[in-house]
């Protein structure tokens, strides 16, 4: 038979609350950032055509580099999240778990 837990007590645990606050701030903030950054692409392609046309490297224009930057921003954000989660969130989680799971 699996162990049963006092979920409400865990939810009120200060460490869990800290985990919850940190995660919420990080996840929502960066999700919003990435979404806004992404939608700048179709919006810009439609309404900022003059900007997108500017040639920066030979024939490569701003629009192309901006679209390419989406890939690097996504990869970068994914690794940044993994870094923070592996370091902070996992540590806090382990502390909460060790307090309640025997």
């Amino acid at each position: 038979m699996a162990q049963t837990y006092d979920w409400a007590a865990i939810a009120k645990n200060p460490k869990f609350i800290e985990l919850h606050h940190r995660k919420q701030r990080f996840l929502f903030g960066w999700w919003a950032f990435s979404t806004v950054y992404y939608f700048l692409l179709p919006i810009g392609a439609a309404y900022a055509t003059d900007l997108f046309k500017i040639k920066l490297l030979g024939n490569v224009n701003f629009g192309y580099l901006f679209a390419l930057s989406q890939f690097f921003v996504s990869w970068g954000l994914a690794h940044y999240y993994a870094h923070v989660a592996n370091k902070d969130f996992d540590r806090l989680t382990r502390e909460v778990v060790s307090e309640f799971v025997k």
Binding site: L27, W30, Y38, A45, A67, F71, Y81
Partner: peptide, 21 residues
């Protein structure tokens, strides 16, 4: 040309939601 490339971007960015949420 460009529009095809732009079209592909959303398919990757979608994974940010998968990852974070």
């Amino acid at each position: 040309g460009y529009d095809g490339f732009m079209y592909s971007v959303g398919w990757l960015v979608a994974y940010i939601t998968v990852l974070l949420v």
